[in-house]
Design a protein around this nucleic acid. Structure first.
Lengths: 223, 223
DNA sequence: CCACAAGGGTTGCGGCAGCATTGCGGAGCT
DNA sequence: AGCTCCGCAATGCTGCCGCAACCCTTGTGG
């Protein structure tokens, strides 16, 4: 799960990013609308959080701009401009939800879940693979209905692979699923996660195997 | 147990919220119908307490509105408009109970219990875990039929975990089960409750253990 | 069939973030 | 006044995870 946060208050952005991280959500953050356009071109986000007052313009203008490129990524507007009239304006421009500042992270999470639930692309509310059922929104994995507790990063790798089981997943796709731009890695951390994950999957008899496609990425197969 | 109170007399609302709190019920309070609609969209309440005269309209109009969204959350109307004709009106619109002001909190509690007893979703009238039996409506826990008295917040944590035993419960879910929107916590209060609860559970041999899932939440397992 | 290179697998280590524990003090109840 | 509850913060501890060293596998060229 990866989202884009467009917000100019750095403190709020950092707090949000940390809080969302605890829910297994990887957040990219930008302050400027221009960068946001660029980022959405290069990445497929699951949702976008959008402020209105931004240094280079009204955030709402981003919505039609994004839609014009054919993307219907869910957008939640986060703003202090919270008059009923302003809310209507935002929603009519194509925002999926509108949340006034200040807000509780828990409410934002709930709204995110609601918005994603409605999003047809992400019918991934429950991913099944082998004997596993993965619930990425609630950060849980079960094997034959027995809960399995995994470290957060391993869980993210697992979910990213299981979501595309029987397909090769690019190395870079996996990295994008687990790390944001600020969390650069300069080692084989991903390989290490895969390694430990494999061991665990064998231990519990998960009914899946992770294969390597040399020079390309990884592939999860059911047994 | 979490309920929504829609009521415009602030004093009454605060008193009620406090009184219900003593019965282990977490109360979200709002004055406006618009907010109520929003809140029910984002939260799953166990019941709703509804006033009739509200600043933005007749409270009763909320009932069909809620039902239309597919929720059959029990609703108790609390109002000074207590003529027989008015009561019939309320109940026919889909309210589960109708209580005239002024009333005794004890009566409200009893009616709440009655209404919840009928509610099929909450087959959680008795939660069993290990050697414990928890009755969240009467705020009691027994271990091998011996009553155990726990501080209120610890009990709420316990019930929230026991209700989802063998499953990972997100930290945020636990917080939502114990605190309402106004009671923000900025410390490790939850951890402290868990810690003290664990000690007690061991002392009495409750037959359950609370495990931590690092970065995610907690998990109750039976032994 | 061997040499070599490059990519991947595995594993121990260490830093540090997140968790556990506990004493303190304020608030509320009796 | 004395009690318990509970939020808070200080302290110590645990285990995740990035890192890098080393080994194994695969592919290519001679």
């Amino acid at each position: 799960m990866r989202i884009l946060l467009i917000e100019d208050e750095r403190e709020l952005a950092e707090a949000l990013s940390a809080a969302l991280g605890k829910h297994g959500i990887v957040t990219d953050h930008t302050v400027h609308l221009v960068d946001a356009v660029e980022l959405t071109r290069q990445n497929l986000y699951d949702a976008i959080l959008l402020d209105r007052r931004l240094p280079d313009g009204e955030g709402l203008s981003f919505i039609p701009e994004l839609r014009r490129t054919g993307k219907d990524t869910p957008i939640i507007v986060l703003t202090a401009r919270n008059e009923p009239k302003e809310r209507i304006e935002g929603l009519d421009l194509g925002a999926d939800d509108y949340l006034g500042k200040p807000f509780l992270v828990e409410e934002l999470m709930a709204r995110l879940r609601a918005v994603l639930r409605r999003s047809p692309e992400l019918a991934e509310l429950k991913i099944t693979a082998g004997r596993m059922v993965i619930d990425p929104l609630h950060l849980s994995v079960t094997v034959d209905a027995v809960p399995l507790d995994l470290p957060r990063r391993e869980l993210l790798v697992l979910a990213a692979l299981a979501r595309r089981k029987e397909q090769t997943v690019l190395r870079s796709t996996l990295e994008a699923a687990v790390y944001n731009y600020e969390e650069e890695i300069q080692s084989n951390a991903l390989d290490a996660h895969i390694s430990r994950l494999r061991k665990r999957l064998i231990d519990v008899g998960a009914g899946v195997a992770i294969h390597n496609i040399r020079g390309v990425g990884y592939l999860m197969k059911e047994e």
